[in-house]
Amino acid sequence: MEFLINLVLLLFLAAVTFAVIGVRNLFAVVILGGAYSFLMATLLIAMDAVDVGMTEAAVGAGVSTVLLLSALHLTNTEEAAARHSNVLPLALSLLTGAALIYGTWGLPDYGMADTAVNTYVGQQYLERSIPETTVPNVVTSVLASYRGYDTLGETTVIFTAGIGVLMLLRGRRPRKDKETSTGGDAT
């Protein structure tokens, strides 16, 4: 059953990705992106990553979609027709895919407990979290306590990105704009 749910969600994900490639209307692309994020969140929960799934649902389907829509409001909602052929990019991505598929030969099967990934450091965290920190949610104890330096770095990155957006978009908008401004609504 677990396999089946996993397989169906993965196939949905691939289908949505095909739609994103094909559709030219950017509004539709953004909404498909929201659907993609929800599928990804469900898939992450099916793979036991409950914290990650929750974040992906709130961030990917919520905040990212709102940001993309506000950017669309400020720009253009229709993608122009392609000017040159897509043969070279297609060949490039197929080449990358072939190299990556070749790389999967050496990987262990899905869901095994005795792989290198699951035996050393991850197992240590699971064993030591309760005796050392008494926090049952291992993800929280690793995030905030064992790897506190990492999280401090991430928080600083978010802070820096916020400053960057402010520096780029704060201040007066140039007055020579060609498109008719549609002010009024918040989006």
Binding site: V135, T140, A144, G148, T155, A161, V165, R170, A186, T187
Partner: peptide, 30 residues
């Protein structure tokens, strides 16, 4: 440990929430 994690998570909450809202303000106000 519990106190430290609580305080640190509070710091993360404040930065993440206010940054996301500020980014939304700048895009919407543009």
């Amino acid at each position: 440990q519990h106190l430290g994690i609580l305080l640190v998570e509070a710091g993360v909450l404040v930065t993440v929430a206010s940054t996301m809202l500020l980014i939304f303000y700048t895009f919407a106000g543009r």
